[in-house]
Amino acid sequence: MNICILYYDGFCEFEVVISAIQFKDNYFTVALEDKVYISEEKQKFLPDRIIDQLNPEEVDLLIIPGGNPSYLYENLKLKEFIKQIDKKNKYIAGICAGTYLMASYGLLKNKRCTGGSSGVDITREDMSIFNDSIVVQEDVVMDGNMITATGQSFVEFAFELGKLMNVYENDEEAIVDYNWFKNIK
Score class of each variant (00 low, 15 high):
residue 1 M to W: 12
residue 2 N to V: 15
residue 5 I to Q: 03
residue 7 Y to D: 09
residue 9 D to S: 15
residue 11 F to E: 02
residue 11 F to V: 04
residue 13 E to P: 04
residue 15 E to H: 01
residue 15 E to M: 01
residue 16 V to E: 03
residue 16 V to R: 00
residue 17 V to E: 05
residue 18 I to Q: 06
residue 21 I to P: 03
residue 22 Q to K: 10
residue 22 Q to Y: 02
residue 25 D to G: 05
residue 28 F to L: 05
residue 28 F to H: 15
residue 29 T to Y: 01
residue 29 T to R: 05
residue 30 V to K: 01
residue 30 V to C: 12
residue 36 V to K: 13
residue 36 V to H: 07
residue 36 V to G: 04
residue 38 I to N: 07
residue 38 I to Q: 06
residue 41 E to D: 14
residue 41 E to V: 07
residue 41 E to L: 15
residue 43 Q to Y: 13
residue 44 K to T: 09
residue 47 P to C: 10
residue 55 N to H: 12
residue 56 P to R: 03
residue 56 P to A: 09
residue 57 E to N: 10
residue 59 V to T: 13
residue 59 V to A: 09
residue 60 D to Y: 10
residue 60 D to A: 06
residue 61 L to K: 01
residue 61 L to F: 12
residue 62 L to N: 14
residue 62 L to I: 03
residue 63 I to F: 08
residue 63 I to S: 03
residue 63 I to P: 01
residue 64 I to N: 05
residue 65 P to V: 02
residue 65 P to K: 05
residue 65 P to L: 07
residue 68 N to F: 04
residue 71 Y to W: 05
residue 72 L to H: 04
residue 73 Y to Q: 03
residue 75 N to F: 01
residue 77 K to R: 15
residue 77 K to G: 10
residue 78 L to E: 14
residue 78 L to K: 12
residue 82 I to M: 08
residue 83 K to T: 14
residue 84 Q to L: 14
residue 86 D to L: 07
residue 89 N to A: 14
residue 91 Y to T: 14
residue 94 G to W: 02
residue 97 A to H: 09
residue 97 A to F: 03
residue 98 G to D: 05
residue 98 G to E: 02
residue 99 T to S: 09
residue 99 T to A: 05
residue 99 T to V: 10
residue 101 L to W: 13
residue 102 M to Y: 03
residue 104 S to T: 12
residue 104 S to R: 07
residue 105 Y to D: 14
residue 106 G to Q: 08
residue 108 L to M: 14
residue 108 L to K: 08
residue 109 K to S: 13
residue 110 N to W: 09
residue 110 N to H: 15
residue 112 R to E: 07
residue 112 R to L: 15
residue 113 C to W: 06
residue 113 C to F: 08
residue 114 T to W: 02
residue 115 G to Q: 00
residue 115 G to L: 00
residue 115 G to A: 04
residue 115 G to Y: 00
residue 117 S to P: 02
residue 120 V to C: 01
residue 121 D to M: 01
residue 122 I to S: 05
residue 123 T to G: 08
residue 129 I to D: 08
residue 131 N to Y: 02
residue 132 D to N: 05
residue 132 D to T: 00
residue 134 I to R: 13
residue 136 V to N: 06
residue 139 D to R: 09
residue 140 V to C: 15
residue 143 D to T: 13
residue 144 G to P: 02
residue 145 N to K: 13
residue 145 N to M: 06
residue 146 M to K: 06
residue 147 I to H: 03
residue 149 A to H: 00
residue 150 T to V: 12
residue 152 Q to P: 01
residue 152 Q to T: 10
residue 153 S to A: 15
residue 155 V to K: 11
residue 155 V to N: 12
residue 157 F to Y: 15
residue 157 F to Q: 12
residue 158 A to S: 12
residue 158 A to Y: 04
residue 160 E to S: 14
residue 160 E to W: 00
residue 161 L to T: 04
residue 162 G to M: 01
residue 163 K to C: 07
residue 164 L to E: 09
residue 165 M to R: 05
residue 167 V to R: 00
residue 167 V to M: 01
residue 170 N to W: 02
residue 171 D to T: 11
residue 172 E to W: 02
residue 175 I to E: 08
residue 177 D to I: 00
residue 180 W to E: 04
residue 180 W to F: 07
residue 185 K to S: 12
residue 185 K to Y: 12
